[in-house]
């Protein structure tokens, strides 16, 4: 059974309470169409569980098959370093078909981030190490493709439609 080897920490992008009884960690890739589907499902799952669920997103760019996955991940991290990870994360998935340098510039400007700083960060690979660390931790945890979910540290092997995820999370909730 594959388990999460890197515990959720202060470096992570987290939505929800640190006191939530269940943590859902997703390893994803902004160019992966299945992750885009998951992006439509996760917020519904979060809404369903409210403060009982904490959600964490980590990067797992499959760069050999998705040439924009790495720069997109670094763009999200660039926004994240300025407290705007989640809006950038959402915009990247919303605009998956248009991923590319022009889109990153546009999204940065939309979020009141400096597009020139973004260009600089991508060129200097400022966030490459961060993305690689997410990736390596994912590999050691048994991430086997994208998206891969962990529910309270256990890899979720089934499909990730709303009903299946809800059921799996319910099973991880402590009895009231």
């Amino acid at each position: 059974m594959s388990t999460l080897k890197v515990p959720v920490g202060p470096e992570d992008h987290v939505e929800g309470s640190d006191y939530a009884p269940v943590t859902l960690v997703e390893y994803g890739d902004y160019e992966c169409p299945h992750c885009s589907v998951a992006f439509g499902i996760v917020p519904r799952v979060q809404q369903h569980f409210g403060d009982k669920l904490r959600f964490v997103f980590r990067n797992f760019p499959l760069t050999q098959i998705h040439p924009e996955a790495e720069p997109a991940a670094e763009t999200a991290e660039f926004a994240g370093a300025q407290g705007k990870f989640w809006p950038m994360h959402g915009q990247l998935f919303e605009n998956q078909v248009n991923l590319g340098p022009e889109l990153y510039q546009e999204l940065a400007a939309d979020l009141d981030l400096n597009p020139a700083d973004l260009t600089h960060a991508l060129e200097n690979e400022t966030f490459t190490k961060r993305v690689r660390e997410d990736f390596s931790g994912g590999v050691r945890s048994g991430v086997n493709g994208t998206p891969t979910f962990f529910i309270n540290g256990q890899r979720h092997n089934g499909p990730f439609d709303f009903e299946t995820l809800v059921k799996a999370i319910e099973a991880a909730l402590p009895a009231d």
Partner: peptide, 16 residues
């Protein structure tokens, strides 16, 4: 038919 199937994953981590 999935992204990052088993072989694609191994391809990504060849350096490991």
């Amino acid at each position: 038919p999935v992204c990052g199937d088993q072989m694609a994953l191994y391809n990504e981590i060849l350096s490991e």
